[in-house]
Design a binder for these strands. Structure first.
Lengths: 188, 188
DNA sequence: ATAGTGATGACAGTAACTGACATGAAAGAA
DNA sequence: TTCTTTCATGTCAGTTACTGTCATCACTAT
């Protein structure tokens, strides 16, 4: 006889996504989530450090992907080229989960608290990219600046990709945004 | 006979800054702040929408300064030039309050919650800059991208300026960071 | 059998916020 | 003056996110 149903964490995550989607993040209490998952509030906080973190559990994997791509970029690649390759790799990952990404983004856009969490995760990604560049021998302030610019590119491209009516290729949008950046920064 | 001492808001802000500096943000309760200001918790929340907002009341003025500078930039200025002028104007404002800025930044660095709030304020600035550029006839995605890049420049430069041992000129650091950006994005 | 182990429940406590109502000096109208 | 209205503050009860602590009990290894 099983004492508890399996995959508490997964059930909590699913219940949370459903409720955030149905009523919005602010109108959902942790007690609601736990109840739908057949668990208690206390157990929710054993699996997620806070109410927002449910939506950001993938951040760690994304960071690893980005950092690895930068570290493994060819030696010949300039800093901005290295992070661009990295972003494209991430782009392909998102392409496979567009529906989920759109749903998640809609939820985040509905809550200032969630936007704040999203921004600090992106900021952490920028710092990780900068570190990866330093491993490649890129000096500061170039490393830090390139990390921040990469995240700026990602933000803009992701917005365009998510809000475009007909499904497009995120990697392609990223390449286009990079092209725009080069135009904007070109000295005339 | 005066019923209340004057400038409740100012007293609350000062008490909060003192306590955040003495014990850190997390170790300070709103009750502590209200008590030091000779007021009640409820009154704190009448003046500040939350515990973090005390540190960000200047954001509105900064946004106005930046937006005005972009709108009033010469017609001949390219998008990136317009926001650069804008950032330099902000830089001069910060130069005059370096000690305060350093103290405030130390407090923010000590709390993830405060970093999140800082990031969403910067994000709001990026959006405001993008809007100002659209008023100048700059089309998307250039406007949005330039706004984000401007904030990236500001973040990197501000960090360098705050952490440099001998006081430097923020506007100068900003110009240097822009130069770095041009190098990084230049096609080889 | 016996002794852990580890995920969960139960429960009390803190602190950030919110809503509703009361108070009384100050400012203006009569 | 006297009456009325305004408005910043106090008071208090309530909600909710989160934490610390201890109990429970199927499962596992010895």
């Amino acid at each position: 006889m099983v004492r508890w149903e399996p995959d508490s964490r997964g059930r909590l995550a699913q219940a949370a996504m459903e409720l955030y989607g149905e009523r919005g993040f602010d109108q959902t209490t942790v007690a609601d989530i736990a109840q739908r998952a057949g668990l208690t509030e206390r157990t929710f906080f054993r699996h997620f450090s806070d109410k927002r973190e449910v939506l950001f559990s993938g951040a760690h994997a994304l960071q690893e992907l980005l950092v690895n791509a930068v570290v493994n970029a060819p030696d010949s690649a300039a800093p901005l080229e290295a992070v661009s390759l990295s972003l494209e790799a991430a782009g392909n990952l998102f392409n496979a989960r567009r529906d989920f990404s759109v749903q998640r983004q809609r939820i985040i856009e509905g809550s200032a608290e969630l936007q704040e969490r999203e921004l600090i995760k992106l900021s952490s990604l920028a710092a990780a990219l900068a570190n990866a560049l330093r491993q490649r021998g890129v000096a500061d302030p170039t490393a830090g600046l390139t990390g921040e610019v990469a995240i700026a590119l990602f933000k803009i491209s992701f917005e365009r990709w998510v809000s475009s009516s007909e499904p497009s290729d995120l990697a392609e949008v990223l390449r286009d945004s990079l092209e725009q950046l080069r135009v904007v920064t070109a000295t005339t």
